[in-house]
Design a protein around this nucleic acid. Structure first.
Length: 444
RNA sequence: GUGGAUGUAGCUCAGCCUGGUUAGAGCGUCUGACUGUGGAUCAGAAGGUCGCCGGUUCGAAUCCGGUCAUCCACCCCA
């Protein structure tokens, strides 16, 4: 029996230099998220058990065997079952709906930092209490509704680039982004691929390991995740025969996200499609991703995420899409150590710049990302591909932006952008390639 | 744990006493107009099982009972 004078299995005391690196990392993550235009949120460390069952999925490993569920204290007083959160997305979505944030504001962009709890067998990079930093974009209109247009795919790229920026600034080496599509719940998408995969893998059932034989019925996609050599051989052959097949919306999402992200990732981060990539939580749809880095052993993912367009509705809210990610802070720190990185310095949170997209092009978004990567706090409208300038100015004004950078048809034709000082009203044109430098100069 | 109060739109509230067409206002949100430029103005839209359950009644947001939730004070406490 474990001594009560030891920290519980899978938990850790953090003090000394480790405390300092932890704090430094948290500050980097929070400030980069703010620079990206995301606001902080803290939700309870425990929630109703049902929340996790509904969102993460009944048949997932997390819900089936890794939950820290608190026994009821008494029959009368408290009939509710509570569980320490194994992840934070469920709580953030719950808060989003509970406070009706879809009615109070357009799009919600949040980041959080805090402890998470999973009852697993501890190993390198796997603790029972661990810490995550994550971000979520909630409220994406997936189909035009009335006079509101459907949101473009920009947000799905945005969270990936935010995660990449935090990891790069944390000083990690050998950063790799793997992405894939897991399809969506619409008829003719994931269901079709699942059946084909199930048939193809089922034909070779006896070659698979015991776990995978069970997964065949419960959740075929988890077979792709198996690390055992025999299973790998089988899945490799099957994947060659059964190409991925998803609906046009899921394909379009991937077709936008893949090149956009590759184009804008920070230097030194490699990106590749990985047909084996799956997620252990049921709410994911469409494009999912994972970051790996050096120095981590078997648990080499430092973070992951993807879109979850069905979750808000599944939890009783309106039909709005969402996307997000979470980074494992302990794993980031392990990798930081391995890279012998100097403690990262958190970028300052500077006055806000608003990038106004007034042309149907990815250029405005690319400029917004370049500004952020240069440390300029930049807001960008992820809900529409472009808008009228007047509309943009209203937004810039409401956000109290110091500068507005206007990227419209005229400017793009000339290879320029207009930088406008919101307080004084002066405006001037600069070359688009010099825009980042000019903005920084203008901010002083 | 003890006592008190309150639940109507995202928020602040009106309506309840004296039951009776499709439950309202202000603010906020969303879309658009004002020839590609600002918190203004204008036009439009979305948003509510009146906390929930039951009772009385021809009829309940309105009256009655229960229940849940929240707030305040006290107790205790980081």
């Amino acid at each position: 029996m474990a001594s009560s004078m030891q920290a519980p299995r899978g938990t850790k005391d953090i003090f000394g230099p480790e405390f300092d690196s932890f704090e430094a990392l948290e500050r980097v993550a929070a400030n980069v998220a703010r620079i990206w235009g995301y606001a902080g949120i803290r939700t309870p460390v425990f929630e109703h058990t049902g929340l996790f069952v509904r969102s993460i999925g009944e048949a997932t490993d997390i819900v089936e065997k890794e939950m820290f569920t608190i026994p009821r204290q008494s029959e009368k007083e408290d009939q509710d079952s509570y569980t320490l959160r194994p992840e934070s997305t469920a709580g953030v979505v719950r808060a989003y709906l509970e406070h009706n944030l879809h009615k109070t504001q357009g799009l919600a962009r949040f980041f959080y930092i805090g402890p998470q709890f999973r009852r697993e067998r501890p190993q390198a990079g796997r603790l029972r209490q661990f810490h995550q930093m994550g971000a979520e974009v909630l409220g994406l209109l997936r189909e035009a509704k009335g006079d509101q247009p459907a949101a473009p795919f920009t947000a799905y790229a945005d969270v990936i680039l935010l995660a990449a920026e935090i990891l790069a600034r944390a000083g990690l080496k050998g950063l790799r982004l793997k992405y894939n599509s897991v399809g969506c719940a619409k008829a003719g998408c994931r269901d079709v691929y699942r059946e084909k995969l199930k048939a193809a893998l089922g034909a070779q059932k006896e070659k698979l390991c015991g776990d995978c034989q069970r997964r065949l019925d419960r959740n075929v996609f988890r077979v792709l995740d198996c690390k055992k050599p025999n299973c790998r051989t089988v899945t490799a052959a099957v994947l060659a025969d059964v190409p991925q097949e998803f609906c046009s919306d899921c394909r379009a999402q991937m077709d936008f996200v893949s090149p956009t992200v590759k184009d804008l990732l920070p230097a030194g981060v490699e990106a590749a499609h990985d047909a084996y990539l799956v997620r252990g939580l049921d709410y994911y749809t469409g494009t999912v991703f994972e970051f790996t880095a050096e120095g981590l052993g078997a648990q080499d993912a430092v973070g992951g995420g993807g879109s979850y367009d069905g979750l808000v509705e599944e939890m009783g809210g309106p039909k709005l899409g969402a996307t997000g990610f979470a980074l494992g802070l302990e794993r980031v720190l392990m990798s930081q150590d391995a890279a012998k990185a100097a403690p990262p310095e958190a970028p300052a949170v500077v006055p806000l710049v608003y990038v106004a997209a007034a042309a149907d092009s990815v250029e405005p978004y690319k400029l917004a990302v370049s500004l952020r990567q240069a440390g300029v706090r930049t807001d960008f409208d992820l809900t529409a591909p472009s808008r009228g300038i007047g509309n943009h100015m209203k937004r810039a004004s409401k956000l109290s932006a110091r500068l507005a950078v206007i990227v419209g048809e005229d400017e793009l034709k000339a290879g320029e952008v207009a930088i406008k000082d919101m307080a004084g009203g002066e405006q001037r044109r600069v070359k688009i390639v010099e825009a980042v430098g000019e903005v920084r100069k203008a901010l002083g």
